[in-house]
Design a protein around this nucleic acid. Structure first.
Length: 328
DNA sequence: AATGTTAACAACCGCCTGGTC
DNA sequence: CGACCAGGCGGTTGTTAACAT
């Protein structure tokens, strides 16, 4: 198949880069900047295509590249973000300063291999998997399940009050069209507190996201990066304030009567409310307005205990839920 | 020590998108 | 409006080092 136009030239070298080539590229870019990548090889005296130079620079030679093993925090973040946005490696990498999409992708792929090689416990409630597609779905579900259970993923939470703050802090998570949110009905009170809190905050500009900025500022490690980060944060704040948050709040307030306390906060409780909320959730799903919310009974669908015993492909709604987990 | 296997990483390929003419 | 191009992205393959047998 055809190569990129810039690679059609003769005498274009491929394969691993030699230290001399690296040195040439570094020297050229640090003194001239890269400008147009297609011109870089010629000007830098390299027999490579511009695309190859770009990749080498971005993935390996950039001075702000952070090498070495992923920290547990980074790993957690990758897992969370991957759960939210799927295989959008560049997007995920943008949340990990100094890490490249390629690095994260490689890391994830080896991680997937490890996960898939771990034999899952045979299901006691067998469901016939008849075709390839279903097998893939099953595999994805199993993987998602493994991911979640092994990493205490934030989306399965009985501590939603605290953790939903995390969700609210990342617009990419909430904006994801395929995102799932699991609300343990026992935690609805704290969830509604968060929503009420967010509602209150949203009336006061983007104060919620200023806090986010403060948190993320720890990740800024270079002056120019700080500038970029600031832009990103600003766009978050604008996006969230003008689009995301109001729609979220609107979406999150079910069209059923839920009592409020003196502070005008929602009070959710009782089986009737749970049923209504689940009904509302399914309606939202149909409207594709705010899909994939689920309220369940702690007693019936508890995930707080031994996760090993749950087969996501067969348990009541877990199979359905996990099969719609963002692409893996 | 030789060979096979695996994991990690680097690089390439092909497609998509946005800008320009 | 379509063609062309460069840049960006995700999937995939190739390479190599580490480890096991």
């Amino acid at each position: 198949m055809g190569h990129h136009s810039c690679c059609n030239q003769q005498k274009v070298k491929r394969g691993l880069w030699s230290p001399e080539e690296d040195e040439k590229l570094i020297r050229y870019i640090t003194t001239h900047g890269y400008g147009c990548w297609s011109e870089v090889p010629e000007k830098a005296g390299l027999q490579r295509c511009g695309k190859s130079c770009r990749l080498r620079w971005i993935n390996y030679l950039r001075p702000d590249i952070r090498r070495g093993r992923f920290t547990p925090e980074e790993e957690k973040l990758i897992i969370s973000l991957h759960g939210a946005v799927g295989n959008r490696w560049a997007h995920i990498a943008s949340h990990l300063p100094g890490r490249t999409d390629n690095e994260i992708k490689n890391y994830w792929n080896s991680w997937i291999k490890k996960k898939l090689k771990k034999p899952s416990k045979p299901s006691t409630k067998t469901t016939s998997i008849t075709d390839h597609h279903q097998q893939q779905q099953h595999q994805r579900s199993q993987l998602a399940y493994n991911t979640i259970t092994s990493q205490q993923d934030i989306f399965f939470t009985q501590d939603i009050g605290t953790k939903s703050q995390v969700l609210l802090q990342d617009s990419t998570i909430f904006n994801s069209p395929n995102q799932l949110f699991f609300f343990d009905s026992g935690s609805l009170d704290s969830m509604t507190n968060v929503i009420n809190d967010a509602t209150n905050r949203s009336t006061n500009n983007a104060s919620l996201f200023q806090e986010t900025s403060m948190l993320n500022s720890e990740l800024c490690w270079q002056v120019d990066q700080v500038q970029q980060q600031h832009q990103v944060k600003t766009s978050y704040a604008i996006g969230m304030d003008s689009n995301y948050l109001p729609s979220l709040i609107e979406s999150m307030v079910p069209p059923i009567e839920i009592p409020r306390n003196n502070n005008n906060n929602l009070i959710v409780g009782g089986q009737e409310h749970k049923n209504q909320l689940n009904e509302w959730s399914s309606q939202m799903d149909t409207l594709q307005c705010c899909p994939n919310y689920l309220f369940w009974d702690q007693e019936d669908g508890s995930l707080g205990g031994d996760h090993e015993n749950i087969d996501p492909s067969t348990s009541n709604n877990m199979g359905h839920i996990l099969s719609s987990f963002p692409s893996l």
